[in-house]
Write a protein that binds this DNA or RNA. Sequence first.
DNA 1: GCATTATAGTGTTGCTATTACACTATGTCA
DNA 2: TGACATAGTGTAATAGCAACACTATAATGC
Lengths: 229, 229
Amino acid sequence: MPYTYEYPRAAVTVDCVVFGYDAAALQVLLIQRGLAPFAGAWALPGGFVHVDETLDDAARRELREETGVTDLYLEQLYTFGALDRDPRERVVSVAYYALVDPAHFALAAATDATRAAWFAVDAVPPLAFDHAHILAVALARLRGKVRYQPLGFELLPEKFTLTGLQRLYETILGTPLDKRNFRKKILAMELLRELDEVEQDVPHRAARLYQFDESKYRALTERGFNFEL
Amino acid sequence: MPYTYEYPRAAVTVDCVVFGYDAAALQVLLIQRGLAPFAGAWALPGGFVHVDETLDDAARRELREETGVTDLYLEQLYTFGALDRDPRERVVSVAYYALVDPAHFALAAATDATRAAWFAVDAVPPLAFDHAHILAVALARLRGKVRYQPLGFELLPEKFTLTGLQRLYETILGTPLDKRNFRKKILAMELLRELDEVEQDVPHRAARLYQFDESKYRALTERGFNFEL
DNA sequence: GCATTATAGTGTTGCTATTACACTATGTCA
DNA sequence: TGACATAGTGTAATAGCAACACTATAATGC
């Protein structure tokens, strides 16, 4: 049942840049398109916004449908509205970026229409549409924001070692950090709960495990505290 | 000539939060709506995005048409997609925020359809749609961003005094700043060109005028320099 | 023209935060 | 039990930040 409008309209899509951290590299979740345009090419998960769902809902729905990822930190990134981003028609895309621990869930099985896989952010294949550009913007945002918001924890398992956390920050920021200074700073913030557990199955002295304490963070934030580096 | 689509679609609008600085207060530019919905109410300037213009172009066009403002710093803010933001139909709004020196241009004359005026940001009338929310988000962004990007200069005349610049920052940030420390810091950045001119028509010793040096800023930025406070 | 007023302009010091840096401790494995 | 791999820990020098008050200059009014 077709709908009629007085003027031609732009369609609205959402596209999601899902970051994960694994194997000591920052990864991004891509899907392989089954349909034209760009059939066979890799692309960011995403799709058209339904008329009865919010943008956030659309982003979560597309992620669930196309990749199986459900539980994640999700934040709007930017809205891309170049005239020729989609060869079919005028499409405005509201881009989101998301952070997730890849070990925490299984990717959706491949279907006829789509297949999902992780790629290291510095080794992504050519992407459909303007998705390479969107990815670049998302990376810049992540690198900028991770310095003054405790986002890094979203990419790690619930329990992690201080060295693991440091490696993550080194990977995202692209610079080595001093071990003693890093630990001093992080611990001084009192955002971490020290657990009575150590990592398992390592061929050397095991490191103590820590947990991010969301409630402490919220309490501190209300008192004007600012996370930094 | 109506257009037909398979599914109902969201319409796309742009809305602009235009900040100005005058009379020692931060101001926002509003228009009074002539048409339903919200006829007579004040609202952010904005309107529907044409199918053959980018989002940025649409924002600039609406500003020109509705307010007469043409030359300004304009940046995308956030995209609002709640289901009921517009009582007529589903409308997704890409919001922009803009900075301008109000003294630099004249507001567009009132027409049957619209009338533009400045309001102090802490004394705006009730706004149409979700525009009060959009304004709040824009203010938060401005307050956050002004600390690490030299945005303040966009709100001032080309030539300004150091005290004027300090007052602006105090107004936006809502905190008093130390005069000597402020001057030291700003001058140490070497972003300002010191002019051989002083302010005119003041009933006391006249202050020296300075000018923001955009090219110096770009040069420094490329070398990893970061504006702060 | 002199006193008043209003703002411009200017340095130093103590404190805090940041950086740079190297060794001992502990567990695993062969 | 020795070799190994990583955990875990403190200090000193430096740089950046915050706090603070007086003199200089132009205009105005008497």
